[in-house]
Design a protein around this nucleic acid. Structure first.
Lengths: 274, 274
DNA sequence: AGTCAACTCGCACACTGTTCGAGGAGAAGA
DNA sequence: TCTTCTCCTCGAACAGTGTGCGAGTTGACT
């Protein structure tokens, strides 16, 4: 039997319903969802509450949106909309600006931390973000698949930095007090847990003792890693001087106990290309 | 009224209960949870199902574990346990090895994608991972807070790369067929959605048309970014030649429309230090 | 034998996402 | 105007969910 070739639909491939223009429509639902999410977090978003907020029955929403996940996909894309970037800037400026913008957007909508990377991000706004990065890298001189690599690296770093930071902020805020106070308050707990790791503990104490606003500290940390990454990518640009190029721990899983049968966890040998 | 100074407890600060040694205990619960999670994914983990699997009532679990989130924290830490790294290696080897190991662990337990960075990661195994990285960076020559920056950057990049990849693999697998087939299958959808972004589309076609196994492609991509990041960090080591040091888009939110009142989204000026 | 802590668990509560089918409302055609 | 048909809404119901509570059981120690 030949496969019926299922078409792989998504929210973005289906037209929004509701062309009669009265009553509910998709945009207004998404807007209300965002309000709720921003105000009360992801646990507060239920179809019933959302319906009530719109003066509608909970199940009415299902006419406009296939299910809750689709609704969240739509909401996520609105987050990506906030990522602006300058036009006509250098590739480093563009990349940095997208990175900072993405970080800012995530921090401004902390409910998205559990969704990022989990829901597919192929909405229009996510696409314009990607497109900007792709174009910047292309103009910079990256070629072929290296463009994807560079774009992917910048996005990966940014997501990986912003998501835990957003969650961490949530923790600090829940305590009520100022971030700085809260951080000091959980020191005894950390001390108990991290006993036996003197280096680690020293780092934590250093970090908190400086009196530096933790929020600012994270900014500096983010910048540090971002600059390092961009430097490293720059060096990979054709025409750049011979960037320092060691290959990364190619024997990474020689001593990881896992049985990586034929799956792809295994680092490819001889990388560190260009 | 003086604050009662709430102690900030967590799973890791409380002794596991069940010292009588009979019936349930925390370890065995966590093990069963991991089995369930690995076998059927995160949606399949309910307290009732887990209880049944252990031949116990659902609510019995609550004697050993405060709530489901704590249980997931415990499970997550078991994932970090799988991250091994060589001893006595260079800092690059250690960093690379931790990065590959962390990626591998996440890909091996895709149920954790929605948890990473969301649940606090201060379990013992997460700590040994951090500690290894900290020590490596310290021995490499990083000093003071730069150690945290370097460690944070490597982890951020790795998480940000691995989480979406794990989710993406889940998508491909759900389709049933080989990843390569599945990727081609969703091309028409992508084409429809990404019309208007020729550069983006070209990239996607390039990416799929090469005939390269998508899993391997992601490996190479991961390595590319990792090497770039490590190169960039290397250049920041005291004593390294004058690494290229531009500051990243410091005007990132000049033109982001957001009103960043006094919050910390705003990039600090004049970074790109060292 | 009695006591007390450690532990288990059924019941119940307040919710959740989603399906289904009955119905209303407005436009289009007769 | 009446009918028909499509679009759209929504109440009821289902099959779950995490978890608080209080009664009950078990086993070791006095």
């Amino acid at each position: 039997m030949t496969m019926p070739a299922k078409p792989f639909t998504s929210v973005w491939t289906r037209e929004p319903r509701g062309r009669r223009g009265q009553g509910l429509n998709r945009d207004q639902i998404v807007r209300a969802a965002l309000e709720l999410l921003d105000a009360e977090g992801i646990d507060a978003l239920s179809m019933r509450k959302l319906g009530a907020r719109l003066g509608a029955g909970a199940t009415s929403l299902y006419w406009h949106v296939a299910n809750k996940d689709e609704l969240l996909e739509l909401a996520m894309d609105e987050v990506y909309r906030e990522v602006r970037s300058p036009v006509g800037a250098s590739w480093r400026e563009t990349a940095g600006s997208v990175a900072w913008g993405l970080r800012g957007a995530i921090l401004a909508h902390p409910w998205c931390v559990g969704l990022i990377g989990v829901l597919p991000s192929i909405g229009p706004n996510a696409l314009v973000m990607s497109d900007r990065l792709v174009r910047a890298c292309k103009e910079a001189g990256f070629q072929g698949i290296d463009i994807d690599f560079a774009v992917g690296a910048v996005i990966a770093y940014t997501l990986g930095a912003a998501v835990p930071e957003a969650a961490w902020r949530g923790l600090l805020n829940r305590a009520g007090e100022s971030p700085c106070e809260a951080q000091k308050e959980m020191l005894p707990a950390i001390e108990g847990v991290a006993a036996g790791y003197p280096d680690l503990l020293e780092r934590y104490k250093d970090y908190t003792a400086g009196g530096l606003d933790p929020l600012v500290a994270r900014q500096i940390a983010f910048d540090y890693g971002l600059v390092a990454l961009l430097d490293g990518l720059d060096a990979r640009l054709p025409g750049a001087g011979p960037g320092m190029t060691t290959d990364t721990a190619r024997d990474a899983d020689r001593d990881t106990g896992r049985d990586t049968d034929s799956d792809a966890e295994r680092p490819v040998p001889g990388t560190g290309r260009r």
